[in-house]
């Protein structure tokens, strides 16, 4: 099995220290986290971690099971890139005078779907959203025009096949959950595991 990019989505309680508890599951195995985002989820009080790593499917599956074992974790899913819709946001700061002079830049920005967030006398901040390659291409394009600062956010991702967590959570709240709550346990149907 070869390594590829996986996006791990973890639904958790909102508790101090949980980020560390999850992060050390990766560092313990010497796995680099490419990108990590924590945010609210579609359900109030439930947090959602989006973690991107490069690993084999076997490692990712075992990792998700260990993550899910943590007391405050409700569920961990993992998906390949074609199973999700994802975006990253990037900000680019460039000198305004150069931007204003060079018409090409405007065209470039239009081409990359970027927009101006701030325009000041001294600098302008553009924002672009997209896949990594897209935001990366814009850096390349802006570099000749004195890119002053660049920053990119972590990946946020939506699972294409997911029906959301509302119904799942209702089951988790019952003392005796229904069978589909723990469908990750159907290990012999490994291809279907972790997809909702």
């Amino acid at each position: 099995m070869s390594k590829q990019e996986f996006t791990i989505t973890v639904y958790t309680e909102n508790q101090i220290g949980l980020l560390n508890r999850i992060a050390i599951m990766f560092s313990r195995r010497k796995i680099n986290i490419e990108s990590l985002n924590t945010s609210p989820s579609e359900v109030e009080n439930i947090h959602r971690f989006t973690i991107v790593i490069n690993e084999t499917e076997e490692v990712v599956r075992k990792l998700c099971r260990q993550i899910e074992k943590q007391v405050e974790v409700l569920k961990a899913y993992f998906n390949t890139n074609d199973e999700i819709v994802w975006q990253e946001m990037a900000l680019y700061k460039v000198p305004t005078d150069i931007i204003a002079e060079k018409v090409k830049v405007e065209r470039l920005l239009r081409e990359f779907g970027a927009r101006a967030v701030v325009i000041r006398k001294d600098y302008t901040v553009f924002e672009a959203t997209g896949h990594r390659e897209e935001t990366e291409r814009l850096i390349k394009a802006l570099e000749p025009y004195q890119l002053i600062e660049f920053v990119r956010s972590a990946r946020v991702a939506i699972i294409k096949a997911s029906n959301g967590f509302h119904e799942k959570l209702k089951e988790f709240e019952q003392t005796e959950p229904g069978e589909d709550v723990i469908e990750n346990e159907f290990l012999d149907k490994q291809d279907e595991v972790f997809t909702m």
Binding site: T12, E13, V71, E72, V73, L74, L169, F172, E173, T175, P177, E179, V181, I182, E185
Partner: peptide
């Protein structure tokens, strides 16, 4: 304590 929603002490027997 008898239940924590994010914690499944016993998996369901299949």
């Amino acid at each position: 304590c008898e239940h924590i929603r994010s914690y499944r002490p016993k998996p369901i027997v299949r």
